[in-house]
Design a protein around this nucleic acid. Sequence first.
DNA 1: CCCGACTAATCAAAGCTTTGATTAGTTCTG
DNA 2: CAGAACTAATCAAAGCTTTGATTAGTCGGG
Lengths: 179, 179
Amino acid sequence: MTQEQTDPRHLDFWSFVDHAITRTARELPDVDRRAMRLVLTLHRAANMLVYDLESTVHRPRGLSWPGFRVLFVIWLTGQVEAKKVAELSGMSRAAVSALVGTLERDGLVVKERAPHDGRAVHLGLTERGRETITDAFSAHNVREQEWAGALSEDEQTTLIALLEKMTTRSTRFDARRRT
Amino acid sequence: MTQEQTDPRHLDFWSFVDHAITRTARELPDVDRRAMRLVLTLHRAANMLVYDLESTVHRPRGLSWPGFRVLFVIWLTGQVEAKKVAELSGMSRAAVSALVGTLERDGLVVKERAPHDGRAVHLGLTERGRETITDAFSAHNVREQEWAGALSEDEQTTLIALLEKMTTRSTRFDARRRT
DNA sequence: CCCGACTAATCAAAGCTTTGATTAGTTCTG
DNA sequence: CAGAACTAATCAAAGCTTTGATTAGTCGGG
């Protein structure tokens, strides 16, 4: 019932995925190892990337990662409804609402009632918001290039295509999305 | 200075990446579009995957995504120090400490002082913890297979290889990692 | 033996996220 | 035109995350 335990002391961040797959397959023989490795690897890659970008680029500029994302969306769309920002950034409306609170307090975003709909709020950047996002995005892209540079251009193109294929096909089995 | 704004109302979650790249390249001509697309696509894929797994598999079983990850690591390693769990799961020690608090309260994890080091805490699963993680992981893997099934086996293998290459090479430019 | 350096865990404060309820404003329908 | 149905935003409560400080225990050198 209880699995035999090997000594975990030799494990580290890098060897953990292999260990996890081997051991899980022993416990649960029906497991699809390839799918398991795919999800573990994808999750880990995204986490590392975000942690690195946030700590080297955004926090030093006083932005959080979600704050950067919201600012980025508003920068690219101009005046937008908060609802749209939530949809485009993949966040919940409540999260955007809270986030805009701090961005407004920090003088990066302005909020005003929409002219033809008393419920909606239109968001826009302040001058300082614009300066912040262009500076942050430039540094962000430099760092992105370091990450992408681990792969050849063809490899990058392939990776993008595979990720896009996986996400667009996820609608076929009704993957849950934020509404 | 201020960019001309197109009407953002026609934009949606799927078209946003293309729009973002086109518009950013217009504003900041030096941007590397491929690197930009890579990071946007990777981040989005990982988010969709986690959101789907968490809402269809884990929340219905009373687990959060981070809670699942911690339980998973303890399941695979047996008795471990909290520090090791943090290292293997890629979380901070403080996060693990807080998370273990709720997992212990929910009767899934037990905490005991390490025999030969009065500072360390050893973590283990309760019987209920073991039942919970095996049930959750089985459902988790079924769902993973749906995601992976969007790609052929060769494509899955390629995707895994590219992600691994990118993450292992990230050490070459000193990507920040949690310590 | 004891002091200083180190290390494990936890705490504290601030911020972000989630779901579900609430408030306010709009639109459809009879 | 009034009420019902709907929609945008916000609030509330609970949980997770981060960094930096604190507490407690270990260990090596003088």
